[in-house]
């Protein structure tokens, strides 16, 4: 028990070092260019490679090129939700304030990438399978993931008092993590129209390296892009909360000093 206590404490201390918003802003500002520019370069390279320089598939022809956007989007939809679940855990157990802000910002980006995954999958399914949509286990579990994202987005903004929204959304975020293994293993546990994974941790990929490389470049590019967008939004959110704190503090001081109404305008010289 003692060991777990100290582990919990140490984990808490580790994360709380980065809970300091000032520290995060400095770290984020340093990190941002290293995320943004590689993301743009790799995504453009991967997309051009996939669209124009990778070979056509033996059974799918050129339609296989949809894979280079669909598969990274699908991976990111799941890993983005895993990130959300970690933020939820940090919020519930350690009351980490930055984790709450991160959960607010990851939600919409994750929902958008899940929508891309579903839409590109549909656009791939129509010419290949002969249908836009089927209710097989893989497609349905990803749709559930999309609704989990939407529920999280709505719940975290649903309360007047933000703390209550953070708490409720964190419970949903953590509980929804149950869907992740279902998505991953759906194609193995049940027979589905969706094909099994080509790339697994255990076996050789059943994919030509001429197609694997552009896929990996796209995946890396999209992942960095996801991180870059989340970090930028999170920095903006931290700054916005500072602005709100400064304004309310000034309003308080304004009330104390003049005892009268104080405009909330930024440039309205409150200290004058």
């Amino acid at each position: 028990m003692n060991a777990t206590h100290s582990l919990v404490a140490r984990t808490g201390t580790f994360f709380h070092r980065y809970a300091n918003p000032g520290r995060f802003l400095r770290l984020g500002a340093r990190l941002q260019p290293w995320l943004t520019w590689p993301a743009v370069a790799l995504s453009v390279t991967g997309i051009v490679w996939g669209l124009f320089f990778s070979p056509a598939d033996w059974q799918q022809g050129d339609s296989v090129r949809i894979m280079y956007v669909h598969v990274p989007a699908a991976w990111l939809a799941s890993s983005g939700y895993a990130g959300l679940a970690v933020c939820s855990l940090l919020s519930l157990v350690w009351r980490h304030p930055l984790a709450d802000l991160a959960a607010v910002e990851i939600g919409p980006v994750g929902a958008a990438i899940t929508a891309v995954c579903l839409a590109t999958g549909s656009l791939w399914g129509k010419p290949m399978w002969g249908t836009w949509w089927v209710w097989d286990a893989r497609l349905t579990s990803v749709l559930v993931l999309f609704f989990l994202y939407l529920g999280h987005i709505a719940l975290i903004r649903a309360f007047d008092e933000p703390q209550r929204g953070y708490r409720a959304a964190a419970i949903l975020g953590l509980a929804g993590a149950v869907d992740l293994p279902i998505i991953k293993f759906s194609v193995q546990w049940w027979n589905t129209l969706h094909q099994p994974d080509s790339i697994t941790l255990t076996g050789a990929p059943t994919m030509s390296t001429a197609m694997l490389w552009p896929l990996l470049v796209c995946t890396l590019g999209f992942t960095l892009g996801f991180a870059a967008i989340v970090v930028a939004r999170l920095r903006a959110a931290v700054m916005e909360s500072r602005i709100r704190a400064a304004l309310s503090a000034r309003r308080g001081r304004g009330h104390a000093a003049t005892g009268g109404a104080q405009d909330s305008d930024v440039r309205g010289g409150a200290v004058a």
Partner: peptide, 19 residues
């Protein structure tokens, strides 16, 4: 299948630029 491919890429790039 070009329209399907073009739509898929257009949608992805459009959303990335928007975000």
């Amino acid at each position: 299948h070009l329209p399907y491919i073009a739509t898929a890429y257009g949608m992805t790039i459009g959303l990335a630029v928007l975000l």
